[in-house]
Amino acid sequence: MKILKLEKGKLDLFASVVQQFGEVHAPTEHEGKFSFKRLNSWSEARLDYNRTVLPPRKYFLPPRETLFKYREATGYVPATEDLEKRVVLFGVHACDIHALNILDEVFGKGYLDPYYLTRRKNITIIGIDCTPDEHCFCRSMRADFAETGFDLFLKDIGDHYLTFVGTARGDDMVIATGPLFSEVTHSDIVEYKRRSSQKCDTFKLDLEIRDLPEIFELEYQADIWEELGEKCLSCGNCSMVCPTCYCYDVADEVKLGSHDGDRVRLWDSCLFATHALVAGGENFRKTRSSRIKFRFYHKQRGFVAEYGRPSCVGCGRCIEACPVGINIVGVINRLRGVEHASTD
């Protein structure tokens, strides 16, 4: 892999050059919370953020998008607006890049989802290092380092960012900025390794994912699911903020006084009461406990069977977003019978 380094003081210069590759979006702050937004000026970017409210998924699978326009004369015509828009996501954390790689498995295999894949091609990802906070457990989920799925990845080594070039487009960005980048020295490598092992020690949450599918099967009837069902609000916050939740609903919106309309898809959540309701009235997951169990089961067990790894990346968003304090790390450790000091 091509690795260079970029002087931190020249980051704004780099960002200005990057604009030619698309509209620059980065984490911005609002009352202590962060979200990816289009930057009006580079000074708005907060690369020291802990996590954004919504993950970058919103750029690839928007909360609401039009799939088709139906017109009597033409039938269903695919909607292509905005698909070609080129965006540079500046400052994506490793866990969120892993999450996109997981979504690639879902939308980029079997039947290919052309909407997702077109956006994936048109959106540039510049990754950045982060410092784990009290909700992070990406290391446990093997998502604390991204090897693929980005165009460039910036790793903090003090005065510089080590810059890992992941794609040809990433390389084009480096080349476009010319002399901003320089060669990596031996002492840079030493510093990178020091910081890397230091980061490993800063995680406050820990869980073991080995044989998790077996644990889930064994504990399928455990009391904890009923308990969680009593607590869970079915508000869907955890699904909305999850970087790998991809459930969606599809609806036709008809125009007043005609059959013409749009077919749209909208985010959905397996926690909503109607998620498994069929037209005849049968609801296959009628109780809250069955729905929250399904959510955990699908992420930590079902996805492993299908794609070889859990679909959780340990970003901590669901822990932060749950109004009643349901904590995935706590749930899993309890299923395992392991108490962890900081997971209550």
Binding site: V106, C247, Y248, D249, D268
Partner: peptide, 8 residues
């Protein structure tokens, strides 16, 4: 086609 999650 195995994307929307409902029939899981």
């Amino acid at each position: 086609v195995g994307k929307c999650g409902h029939c899981s």
